[in-house]
């Protein structure tokens, strides 16, 4: 299930899963829940920018080393 959500299944595995999901409401609900969890994380976790001073010091480090 996780592998399907992450696009890590082979084409054959994916086809088998889709066929099963068509027939099984329980797995279908679980699949959607799992996918929603991934979407929530992607959309809702705060991402910050690295401080400019850190970026400058790393660029300088690579120039001066």
């Amino acid at each position: 299930m996780s592998a399907a959500i992450d696009g890590e299944l082979t084409a054959k595995e994916e086809q088998d899963l889709l066929t099963h999901l068509d027939e099984c409401a329980e797995c279908r609900a679980e699949y959607q829940d799992a996918r929603n969890t991934k979407v929530i994380l992607r959309e809702r976790i705060v991402r910050v920018q690295a401080p400019q001073t850190l970026m400058d010091s790393i660029i300088n480090m690579s120039i001066m080393t």
């Binding site: 609900a29 929603n36 969890t37 991934k38």
Partner: peptide
């Protein structure tokens, strides 16, 4: 891990339109 997380986020998902 996702299963655990899902349980913790169940209310959140419903509240913010991420329900099934």
């Amino acid at each position: 891990g996702r299963k655990l997380l899902r349980a913790k986020l169940e209310d959140y998902a419903k509240k913010h339109g991420y329900d099934t």
